[in-house]
């Protein structure tokens, strides 16, 4: 897969918009439908917010790395932080509280995994966390 964009974003909420705009531009050129582009925007935003908040813990001296790669049939986005890693088992699976209401937080990974075709998470000691999201043009 051809690498198209590699960015380093400041670890500040809102900085993800630059990367999202670039990925959306590529997705549009590839022919993704608008509803899939909206899914991509939300998935990328949630991955970046998680990286800034949970991975890099709002440390403004750190960066969030974004790689966007594409070929004729698929678009891949990797979001990379420098954090110590999150235990996937600790990500809440239950989204309804005791009172029957949706829980306040913990939707990032849930949304990402439901909005893209493929999703994986990798944590390497000393190398941070990588969230990989893949969207297929015809799925």
């Amino acid at each position: 897969m051809e690498k198209i964009i590699k960015l380093e974003l400041p670890n500040i909420l809102g900085s993800e918009k630059v990367a999202i705009e670039k990925a959306v531009s590529i997705a549009k050129k590839m022919g993704f439908r608008q509803d899939r582009i909206d899914d991509l925007k939300t998935a990328m935003a949630e991955a970046c917010i998680n990286a800034i908040e949970h991975g890099n813990k709002f440390d403004e001296n750190t960066k969030v790395g974004i790689t966007v790669a594409a070929d004729d049939t698929k678009l891949e986005v990797v979001v990379h932080d420098t954090g110590t890693g999150i235990d996937p088992e600790k990500i809440p699976k239950k989204r309804v509280g005791e009172n029957g209401f949706p829980k306040r937080r913990g939707y990032g990974v849930f949304l990402i995994s439901n909005l893209v075709n493929e999703f994986s998470y990798e944590a390497q000691p000393g190398e941070g966390n990588k969230v990989k999201m893949m969207m297929h043009l015809n799925k």
Partner: peptide, 17 residues
Amino acid sequence: LSDHFQKIFRMVGLTRC
């Protein structure tokens, strides 16, 4: 809400409340 955020509301269960 746009169609996309209507979908997000349903996904997280916010439409129940």
